Simulated scan of single mutants.
Amino acid sequence: MLALSYKVAFLVVITSVRRVSELRALTSEPPYTVFHKDEVQLRPHPAFVLKVVYQFHINLDIFLPVFYPKLHSGSREQRLHSLDVHRALAFYIERMKQF
């Protein structure tokens, strides 16, 4: 489970390119995490206050794209699909529901 947590954290960090404080404001609750067909939309918790407060940055959603969707044409694409943040995040949220 620890390896899965590290993998999901790493994939979210490299695909979102956000500050640590912004990533800490994310939550997996349904209104803040929305899974679309081709991306994951993450919204920071409304109580979160940005380090740099500009109107442009307030309530800015984070969109994480799908990486190599299901239809694979080879083993390389199948291996790359294991790095898909959409798949990993959905799996992680499902596994961590009991906690």
Results as ranks from 00 to 15, higher is better:
residue 19 R to C: 13
residue 19 R to S: 07
residue 19 R to D: 04
residue 19 R to V: 04
residue 20 V to E: 11
residue 20 V to R: 13
residue 20 V to F: 08
residue 20 V to P: 05
residue 21 S to D: 10
residue 21 S to H: 11
residue 22 E to Q: 07
residue 22 E to P: 03
residue 22 E to R: 06
residue 23 L to T: 01
residue 24 R to N: 08
residue 24 R to S: 14
residue 24 R to M: 15
residue 24 R to C: 13
residue 24 R to P: 11
residue 25 A to Y: 06
residue 25 A to G: 02
residue 25 A to F: 04
residue 26 L to K: 09
residue 26 L to A: 03
residue 27 T to Q: 06
residue 27 T to F: 00
residue 28 S to V: 09
residue 28 S to N: 02
residue 29 E to C: 02
residue 29 E to D: 11
residue 29 E to Y: 03
residue 30 P to E: 06
residue 30 P to T: 00
residue 30 P to V: 00
residue 31 P to I: 03
residue 31 P to E: 08
residue 31 P to R: 06
residue 32 Y to M: 05
residue 32 Y to E: 06
residue 32 Y to I: 02
residue 33 T to I: 07
residue 33 T to E: 05
residue 33 T to R: 07
residue 33 T to Y: 07
residue 34 V to S: 01
residue 35 F to L: 12
residue 35 F to M: 15
residue 35 F to Y: 15
residue 35 F to I: 03
residue 36 H to A: 01
residue 36 H to E: 07
residue 37 K to T: 10
residue 37 K to F: 10
residue 38 D to H: 06
residue 39 E to V: 01
residue 40 V to H: 03
residue 41 Q to L: 15
residue 41 Q to D: 13
residue 41 Q to R: 13
residue 41 Q to P: 07
residue 42 L to T: 03
residue 42 L to G: 00
residue 42 L to W: 05
residue 43 R to W: 01
residue 43 R to Q: 06
residue 44 P to W: 00
residue 44 P to R: 02
residue 44 P to Q: 08
residue 44 P to L: 09
residue 45 H to P: 00
residue 46 P to N: 14
residue 46 P to T: 10
residue 46 P to H: 14
residue 46 P to R: 13
residue 46 P to F: 14
residue 48 F to G: 01
residue 48 F to W: 03
residue 49 V to T: 05
residue 50 L to M: 04
residue 50 L to N: 10
residue 50 L to E: 09
residue 51 K to M: 09
residue 52 V to T: 14
residue 52 V to M: 13
residue 52 V to R: 12
residue 53 V to K: 10
residue 53 V to H: 08
residue 53 V to S: 07
residue 54 Y to G: 14
residue 54 Y to D: 15
residue 54 Y to K: 15
residue 54 Y to F: 15
residue 55 Q to F: 04
residue 56 F to D: 12
residue 57 H to K: 04
residue 57 H to R: 02
residue 58 I to D: 13
residue 58 I to G: 10
residue 59 N to Q: 15
residue 60 L to G: 02
residue 60 L to M: 11
residue 60 L to Q: 14
residue 62 I to F: 05
residue 62 I to W: 09
residue 63 F to Y: 10
residue 63 F to S: 01
residue 63 F to L: 10
residue 63 F to V: 08
residue 64 L to P: 02
residue 65 P to D: 03
residue 66 V to I: 12
residue 66 V to K: 15
